[in-house]
Design a protein around this nucleic acid. Structure first.
Length: 950
DNA sequence: CCCTCCCGCCAGGCG
DNA sequence: CGCCTGGCGGGAGGG
């Protein structure tokens, strides 16, 4: 409870004691409360990383293990968090000492020691030992916090979060915990149960939330606002440079200035009673901030712009500098948390004036259309199921929706009300007849959704085709994604049944399956929905994907600029919207019209390693950053927390190209990536073409299904209710989410498999020009080691296990080989063996689950991994499937760094051994997986750390 | 000096 | 009234 003490304690501990960071663990021990334990358990698993950070591996009885914690052997599998720790430790020797010391002592000892130390050491030493601010940073704290809970908690586990406990364990003031929780709440990763008490949902709802936020953001016209702001700035500069500052807040407040908290149905109710503060600006700000990323094409948002927009909405009028400053401060707080979640990365956008701090979205891509549908549906049905939330009255939903300034806030938009009612009715049905009814409802929803989604997809496709090659490519992707989604949905459904927590889910499963086939038919390549075997999916997908991919690559371009231009042209997105970086790149193109402001903006986006967290980036940098950029991104994506259940995959699949961008960014840290432009271009295309089209189509469809927010307009102002099925389906949810997003194969399995598929569509020639090679790397892997392919299966199995226990149905090796060969991925002579062992590749599977840290890790050495992972995901996702054939040939890696790819490939973090580790890890439950994962990637992380430090 | 952002005062609101 | 929340901004660490 000494809130402040944290520092003190930390300091104390720092010197040589277990203290500070360890606190959490210690507390765990101390904490008698069941809740904690519950949480802890899960946490620990996931938390391993933490343990790394703090002390050790508290995991299971872990306290004893302290010694381990101290230093992570490079090879050791650490959790992503662990990587953070490493980074941190690397950054500050002091920390290391602490950790080591911590490790040395048993928890009890540690605790004692802490106290003693405090006394003995006295402030100076302790303080000195303590890390400085960095160690106390919100980002680090958030990592620790996140480490305590599984990304995808099973419904069974209750994950209650006691703020006091957490604060104690983490040795921080409760106030700080609020900052974290508020942001998490904005993402619906957490919800308030009562005073001092929050429920942990993890990332189950993340995709839905993001989709919803994206919708809202679109409705709000944030894109336009951003453009406006940029234009103004630009104009000002031209004129006289004044800082436009806030005075003119571009944001058109009219549109939707109001602060509304976007809620997912079910999530917030509880809070209603609990939530005292209506306007929790931090929450709303967080959501809006996220919306900006989701809406903006480059997905890069500068703090300045974000602050202006946020202010503008609230009160355009007051634009005091102080207010602006305050906003910025808050945004930093939010950004730190989001960074910890690996949803964003810190970047620098260089403009004429100079560098501006900005953040890039590194989270899963949110597909508007398709996603919406499914998600919504799912959500609806699911909602009831969730135990915690099951009962939310409509009223509750409505309340939170409008936290607006006054208490009155809770008025809902009529459209929303409808939605709410619908949802409630659904819930009732479900509840009333848990099994059957729910199923029906679910089925209905799903069916409807699925069908519409298909329709939407088709429509989208048509549009795309018309638009142009780029579009075509996109379309293909979409298709693939759709297919994937379908399949994934099927799988998910299947999976869901077992879980049954939510009756709804089960039913849904059934129907979807039926639907899926159709889709598949339409899309040639996509595999059937074999629900279970991820591997199989992956493989099948590849062929189709490969095609798709192939086309895509061509689109983008050989030249970055050209590519961009292409995308831009295709994409409807105005240049203005594009980040400065993009603009720059784009500028060359002919979009001039749109370009208004961009001209000056220049830009590079530099990634600054965000503190410890950014390790991954750093890693990338070290090696051939540029080369790997994309790979990195992919890796990151994969590894990022989202990854666990396949969310990532889905997202990635959708955004294959975007992934690339991410990679680049990562690489940028060291060397700024000029190439990023390319990336952006890709992203744009994807977004615009795929996502938009899809979203549009899907939206229509979707609307009906869930009550997804009805009309954009209307809904927007008021609050949005998004029916999320909360975690009921632990694993399932994740799946759904994945599906939602990209339609991808939400299944983690898919992800794993994907690597093989080398999604990278780009042709060698094209890639060459760009840096894309990384993507291609994946193919290489395939090429290189047939075994890798085998690995994929393995992975899948593992994944399945981990994620859902579904037995993986691996296609026979012969089939795989055939497929691969057929695709051209693998040389005819080569055959992939199912054995994972040989293959280096495999990393991907777990990584997903693994938190961000893993990503980083992968990046370093592993760019390769990322590549793989990315590819994998992509493939799975959908689009991806494109298995590009791979291999080296495909790899157009730039001459510069071509080797890197290969190296990376082999490097795979675990190396050959890694595979084995995977297998073992796969067996583990999610939590365990996380750890394993972490271990696999650990080495990389370390690297990352160094980079960060760099 | 500037960017970040930690720290904690202090107030609103609930129990 | 006390406690929980969390808005808010001073001011300091780090580069």
């Amino acid at each position: 409870m000494t809130l402040r003490s944290p520092t003190g304690p930390g300091a104390v501990s720092g010197p040589g004691e277990p203290g500070g960071e360890m606190g959490t663990e210690e507390k765990e021990n101390h904490c008698s409360e069941p809740q904690r334990r519950i949480l802890k358990t899960p946490l620990k698993q996931s938390a391993t990383s933490y343990s790394v950070l703090t002390e050790i591996q508290p995991d299971s009885g872990p306290l004893t293990t302290p010694p381990k914690s101290q230093e992570v052997p490079p090879g050791d599998p650490w959790t992503p968090t662990a990587n953070l720790k490493i980074l941190i430790s690397a950054a500050s020797p002091e920390i290391r000492n602490r950790e080591q010391k911590k490790g040395l002592f048993d928890r009890s000892e540690i605790v004692e020691t802490k106290h003693c130390l405090h006394e003995h050491l006295s402030g100076d030493e302790y303080e000195k030992s303590q890390p400085s601010r960095k160690e106390k940073s919100l980002g680090l704290l958030c990592h620790k916090f996140l480490a305590r809970y599984p990304n995808y908690p099973s419904t069974a586990e209750n994950s209650d979060i006691c703020l006091d406990e957490v604060a104690e364990e983490l040795n921080v003031e409760r106030r700080r915990i609020y900052d974290i929780v508020n942001v998490l709440e904005s993402l619906h990763m957490v919800s308030r149960l009562a005073k001092n008490r929050y429920a942990w949902y993890g990332r189950h709802n993340l995709n839905r939330t993001l989709q919803t936020l994206k919708k809202v953001g679109e409705e709000n016209k944030y894109t336009q606002q951003i453009e406006m702001i940029k234009k103004r700035e630009y104009e000002f500069e031209l004129d006289g440079d004044r800082n436009e500052e806030m005075t003119t807040k571009p944001v058109g407040p009219n549109e939707h200035s109001e602060m509304c908290f976007v809620e997912l149905p079910g999530m917030e109710f509880r809070a209603a009673s609990v939530n005292s503060r209506k306007d929790k600006s931090l929450r709303v700000m967080s959501q809006k901030f996220v919306m900006l990323f989701l809406v903006s094409t480059p997905q890069i948002v500068s703090l300045e712009v974000a602050a202006k927009i946020l202010i503008g909405e609230d009160h355009v009028e007051d634009l005091d500098k102080s207010k602006f400053k305050t906003k910025i401060r808050r945004l930093y707080d939010i950004a730190n948390v989001l960074s910890s979640l690996e949803l964003i990365k810190k970047v620098h956008v260089t403009e004429e004036r100079g560098r501006k701090p900005a953040f890039k979205w590194t989270g899963p891509e949110v597909l508007p259309g398709i996603q919406d549908t499914k998600p919504v549906t799912t959500t609806t049905s699911l909602i009831p199921s969730n135990s915690a939330k099951s009962k939310y009255p409509k009223e509750q939903c409505s309340k939170n929706l409008f936290p607006s300034r006054g208490k009155q806030s809770f008025t809902r938009h009529p459209s929303l009300m409808k939605l709410v009612k619908t949802i409630e009715s659904d819930r009732r049905k479900i509840h009333s007849a848990p099994s059957s009814p729910s199923k029906t409802s679910t089925n209905n929803d799903q069916n409807s959704s699925s069908l519409p989604s298909k329709m939407a997809q088709l429509a989208a496709i048509c549009k795309q085709q018309l638009e142009g090659q780029s579009r075509e490519l996109k379309v293909k992707l979409t298709r693939s994604t759709l297919e994937c989604k379908l399949t994934s949905s099927d799988e998910s459904l299947l999976k869901c049944e077992p879980n049954t927590t939510s009756s709804c889910q089960t039913p849904s499963l059934v129907q979807p399956l039926g639907v899926l086939p159709l889709i598949h038919n339409s899309v040639s390549p996509v595999m059937l929905p074999q629900t279970h075997s991820a591997i199989s999916y992956a493989i099948y997908l590849h062929p189709s994907q490969a095609q798709t991919v192939t086309t895509l690559p061509s689109v983008p371009c050989p030249n970055v600029t050209g590519t961009k231009s292409v995308f831009n042209a295709n994409s409807q997105i105005p240049f203005n919207q594009m980040t400065t970086e993009e603009r720059d790149s784009n500028t060359g193109e002919g979009d001039a019209g749109n370009l208004v402001a961009k001209e000056r903006q220049v830009t590079k986006i530099e990634f600054t390693p965000e503190r410890c967290l950014k390790r991954s980036q750093a890693l990338q940098e070290n090696s051939s950053i540029k080369k790997c950029r994309r790979d990195e991104k992919s890796l990151e994506d994969v590894y990022t927390g989202d990854s666990l259940k396949g969310e990532r995959p889905s997202s990635r699949a959708v955004h294959l190209e975007p992934e690339i961008n991410h990679f680049q960014e990562g690489s940028q840290n060291k060397s700024e990536k000029l190439d990023q432009n390319m990336e952006f271009c890709f992203d744009h295309e994807r977004r615009e073409g795929l996502s938009e089209d899809k979203s549009r189509a899907s939206n229509t469809q979707e609307m009906p299904v869930a009550f997804a927010v009805p009309a954009h307009e209307t809904l927007f102002p008021s609050g949005y209710i998004i029916p999320l099925a909360q975690c009921t389906q632990h694993g399932n949810e994740a799946i759904f989410s994945n599906k939602e997003k990209s339609g991808i194969c939400s299944l983690p399995h898919m992800t794993y498999g994907s690597p093989i598929a080398g999604v990278v569509p780009v042709t060698a020639s094209e890639f060459t020009a760009v840096n894309i090679p990384a993507f291609h790397v994946t193919p290489l892997k395939l090429m290189v080691s047939p075994s890798s392919i085998a690995a994929a299966p393995v992975v899948n199995s593992s994944c399945l296990n981990s994620s859902h226990s579904n037995p993986v149905q691996n296609p026979s090796s012969s089939i795989l080989n055939f497929t691969l060969q057929h695709l051209g991925l693998i040389p005819a002579g080569v055959q992939v063996s199912p054995n994972p062992v040989l293959q280096p590749v495999p990393i991907s599977p777990k990584p997903e689950h693994v938190s961000p840290v893993s990503e980083n890790v992968s990046l370093q050495q592993g760019r390769v991994f990322k590549n793989e992972s990315q590819i994998t995901e992509c493939d799975l996702n959908g689009k991806s499937g494109a298995v590009i054939p791979l291999q080296q040939t495909t790899v157009p890696v730039k001459p510069e760094e071509p080797q890197a790819v290969t190296e990376n490939f082999f490097r795979t973090p675990g190396g050959p051994n890694a595979i084995s580790s995977f297998a073992s890890s796969s067996a583990d439950s999610d939590g365990a997986d996380g750890i394993l994962r972490g271990n696999l990637f650990a080495p990389q992380r370390k690297l990352d750390v160094s980079e960060d430090q760099l």
